[in-house]
């Protein structure tokens, strides 16, 4: 079978992906987005989590949540999670890396009076995102979410189904919600979400590449594939904001050194000149395509590659040696051919 280099339409001309993406950006998109949930309880739950995460946990009000990385002893990011404080000594941790986090917790549990239970098989979560998501959620719930703050989780009801509604998401939309409910409610809740979405010109999003690539990338949201080998200071923006060096936490000593000396590598955004390329990136497998300076010096790899339907450009993230490039510079991505890319912020619009 003769195969020619082509790969057109992977993103740009893919009407399915475009429709999924634009539903979230223009009206409302809803999708099954269950993460792993670890429930941490016990009289030392707060102290334990303070030690496990570099950002403050103890000052979270009940019903509020915080995004934080989890570090190893070398201050390398091993997970990034959202910690919900549900009660004084009861937390939910939303993660996609329980495979790393659970053993890491076990290793550091020591004498802390704390219990860690995984609830992933009991709870499911739907993400409802976009400018009309608030209208859609209000159409469904017993208690209005009008006054609900970002990263605030409240108990609510959809019909007779008990739910927890968190205002948040992984799309960068100002209005977005996560609906948690027990697994046995899946069919009933999907029926209600689908019916409500129709009223607001919404759509069920099913494309994995939209949920985890096109939507988050446009707004600078990182995946673990981007964060591999990174310290929090490798990542621009809010990632390192709020790290509390006045407390003890795993990786503190190494992170202080990184803070003083600067990270060896940094994550930057890029826009490709050729919007019909298909670049190998770490979010697919392996190390990703090589990135070089125009003189050919190899300075890093592509960690993410996708398409911005808002910019109509191929975009992504790169993991580069620190200080080698600045915004506006041109680098070369060595994929099946050399591609010119312009260095940008990690937030594209």
């Amino acid at each position: 079978m003769a195969i020619e280099k082509n790969f057109k339409r992977i993103y740009r001309e893919d009407s399915w992906k475009r429709a999924d993406h634009e539903a979230v950006r223009k009206t409302v998109g809803w999708y099954f987005y269950t993460h792993q949930i670890l429930e941490v309880t016990g009289e030392d739950a707060t102290a334990f989590l303070e030690y496990m995460y570099p950002k403050n946990i103890g000052n979270l009000a009940i019903g509020r949540a915080r995004y934080t990385p989890m570090l190893n002893d070398k201050a390398i990011v091993r997970d990034d999670v959202v910690v919900f404080r549900l009660e004084e000594n009861k937390y939910w941790i939303s993660t996609l890396y329980a495979i790393r986090t659970i053993p890491w917790f076990e290793k550091h549990k020591g004498d802390y009076k704390v219990n860690v239970e995984e609830l992933t098989k009991q709870w499911i979560m739907y993400s409802v995102q976009g400018p009309r998501s608030k209208d859609m959620i209000n159409d469904l719930v017993a208690e209005s979410v009008d006054g609900q703050k970002f990263f605030e989780i409240r108990d609510n009801k959809i019909g007779d189904i008990d739910v927890k509604i968190n205002r948040g998401g992984f799309t960068g939309e100002e209005w977005g919600f996560e609906v948690y409910t027990k697994k046995e409610n899946r069919a009933a809740i999907e029926e209600k979400l689908a019916a409500s979405a129709e009223k607001f010109d919404g759509r069920r999003v099913t494309e994995f590449q939209v949920m985890v690539l096109t939507l988050p990338t446009e707004k600078g949201y990182m995946l673990m594939a981007d964060l591999e080998q990174c310290t929090p200071y490798s990542v621009p923006g809010f990632f390192s904001k709020g790290i509390n060096f006045d407390k003890e936490f795993v990786g503190k000593e190494a992170l202080l050194k990184v803070k003083e000396e600067g990270p060896s590598h940094e994550l930057v955004g890029f826009i490709l000149e050729d919007d019909d390329a298909n670049i190998w990136s770490r979010d697919k497998t392996g190390e990703g395509a090589e990135v070089c300076l125009p003189d050919g010096e190899h300075i890093g790899y592509v960690s993410r590659f996708t398409y911005s339907y808002n910019l109509e450009k191929s975009i992504g993230f790169m993991w580069l040696e620190s200080g080698r490039v600045a915004k506006g510079d041109t680098v070369i991505i060595n994929d099946i051919e050399p591609y010119k890319a312009e260095i940008t912020d990690v937030v594209f619009f």
């Binding site: 195969i3 020619e4 280099k5 082509n6 790969f7 057109k8 339409r9 992977i10 298909n278 497998t285 392996g286 190390e287 790899y301 060595n334 099946i336």
Partner: peptide
Amino acid sequence: DQIKVTPEEKRYGKHESQYFRKA
């Protein structure tokens, strides 16, 4: 029309699985 073919000079050799790559 969506297939991407990596040219011969950029393909991996038999000793170049991820288990044997520094990158």
